[in-house]
Design a protein around this nucleic acid. Sequence first.
DNA 1: CATTTTACAATGCACCTGCATGATAATAGT
DNA 2: ACTATTATCATGCAGGTGCATTGTAAAATG
Lengths: 204, 204
Amino acid sequence: MPKIVDHDRRRRELAQAIWSIIALRGLNAVTLRSVAAEAGVSMGTVQHYFRTKDQMLLFACQHMVDLAQAGASSLLERSQHPDEPESIIRAVMHQTLPVDEQQRFGSAVWLAFVAHAIVDDELAEIIRHAWLGLHDILTNQLRTAQQFGKVSDDVDVEREALSLATVADGLVQHAVVGQISADDALAVIDHHLNRLFTKPSYRA
Amino acid sequence: MPKIVDHDRRRRELAQAIWSIIALRGLNAVTLRSVAAEAGVSMGTVQHYFRTKDQMLLFACQHMVDLAQAGASSLLERSQHPDEPESIIRAVMHQTLPVDEQQRFGSAVWLAFVAHAIVDDELAEIIRHAWLGLHDILTNQLRTAQQFGKVSDDVDVEREALSLATVADGLVQHAVVGQISADDALAVIDHHLNRLFTKPSYRA
DNA sequence: CATTTTACAATGCACCTGCATGATAATAGT
DNA sequence: ACTATTATCATGCAGGTGCATTGTAAAATG
């Protein structure tokens, strides 16, 4: 095993251990030793793949962003018809909410990263970039929807995209802390989207 | 000084030191020693007013909630005319956003507490209770607005209150991490409120 | 086969952590 | 004035922290 090791793959495996610790015990429970134990390796191994703890956390966050963006990309490609922006936006929004245990897991980790980004500018840079990606997807889909007459030309696409993104993030907060259920969150999202998209007027 | 000491007042002073550390260096920079240094006292003094570090953080969070609720209460009492729910809601929402340096400070601390609440159920309880208070204010004002015909009877007050609260929280995230400016956040809030409140139809 | 490279582990170290203990001084109560 | 109370401090301690060093064994390379 010792020579043919895919470093990035190994780092990704370690990232999952990091996520587990963050979701279950919080960010300050992440130590070289706890990560090593969670991953079932020695501390030296963790050090071998991450020069410092900071870089370890940055990678864990970046990898989470990468996975989310990959999911969004596959979601975009899977939609053959480009005239379904509403379902695409709805799917993207649903993807960010803690609808199942795995997503709840991810939402908790993400929230921890966002909070830590306040005092870690490198982390903030990663998060801002991720948000920009989401923003681009939303604006593109909204513009497409406008072209197909599904969304009124009066709406400010930029503002609406920001609005949708912030609603999702706020809902994640409330859901993860246990204030609301995932269904409540979905209802709010759907309510927003229903107001945004002009329903097909019943013409028979 | 040694006998006539208002314990709660002292704890509130220490809470401010804790907030400073959280906002500037994050939650895991909060230690008995750092709090003592920030407050200009010895570590023993901090221990004298908080039995454990956990209780210290809980008090710091609870006190932040108390201050916010006091601000909201004075805001409600200051409005003589009960038929101004829109301005009240707008003021409450603006109060949560990082519009000035002090609010930015508070928003950062609050976000740190929320994120930590994921793995600290006592903290989560405080936060859920605070959110409930905000929710009550919003629903009450929305219902009042409905009685005065300022808000359509069609809107689901509960859902709309939750929607407003989550929008604010999401905007706080984006603003504190530097993705958007406070003005951007205010614009989104105003946009939401403008859609919610029926404008006085130009009838002369 | 010899050698270099490399994945992984074990350990040591200076520092920090929360918390407990003991000391000091100043006041409140009597 | 004496004593008990208490606010504050200094210090000690066991455990945890990130990181550096060293060791070891298993391949890949020539």
